[in-house]
């Protein structure tokens, strides 16, 4: 399915954030203290991103350019294929989260480039930047395990 309407793009982004928060809830306790803290940061960021996306959807829906559709954003390109097993190792959990963040960063980057609304583009870029920092922290954590 192509995401062309402004609200559909925002909803998809929020659903991905909810997914990240849900995954963190499930696998956040598999590692030690440092993984748990990292997990809390990721979950808190997802919650904050949802609020930020909600605000953007509320405040920057502009009738003047509302339905000049966005093209080339397809749902299937931004879904994570491989759910983590019930009791993953810390390394597996970390790698899965990195994959999730990778996908969502790619989504936000693509959506920012295609968005007809500049405020929405700013929101996507800002969230993508934060996710990239979290991803770097996770990579550092994984490399410490290996």
């Amino acid at each position: 399915m192509e995401l062309s309407a402004f609200g559909a793009i925002m909803k998809f982004a929020m659903e991905r954030e909810e997914e990240i928060a849900a995954v963190m809830k499930r696998i956040g306790s598999v590692g030690g203290e440092s993984f748990r803290k990292l997990g809390e940061r990721i979950a808190a960021d997802a919650a904050k991103s949802i609020k930020f996306l909600e605000r953007t959807r509320r405040e920057h829906v502009n009738e003047l350019i509302l339905e000049e559709p966005t093209t080339g954003l397809f749902v299937d390109d931004y879904l994570c294929e491989r759910p983590p097993r019930e009791q993953p190792t810390p390394a597996e959990a970390g790698r899965y989260l990195i994959d999730m963040l990778d996908v969502i960063i790619r989504f936000y980057t693509d959506a920012a480039a295609k968005a007809t609304n500049p405020e929405a583009a700013r929101t996507f870029n800002r969230i993508a930047k934060k996710k990239a920092k979290l991803k770097a922290s996770l990579e550092e954590y994984i490399s410490g395990l290996e």
């Binding site: 309407a5 609200g7 405040e59 829906v61 502009n62 509302l66």
Partner: peptide, 12 residues
């Protein structure tokens, strides 16, 4: 109305 149209008019 579509949800986006309803959002746009409430914004207005």
């Amino acid at each position: 109305k579509t949800l986006d149209e309803s959002r746009a008019e409430l914004r207005r």
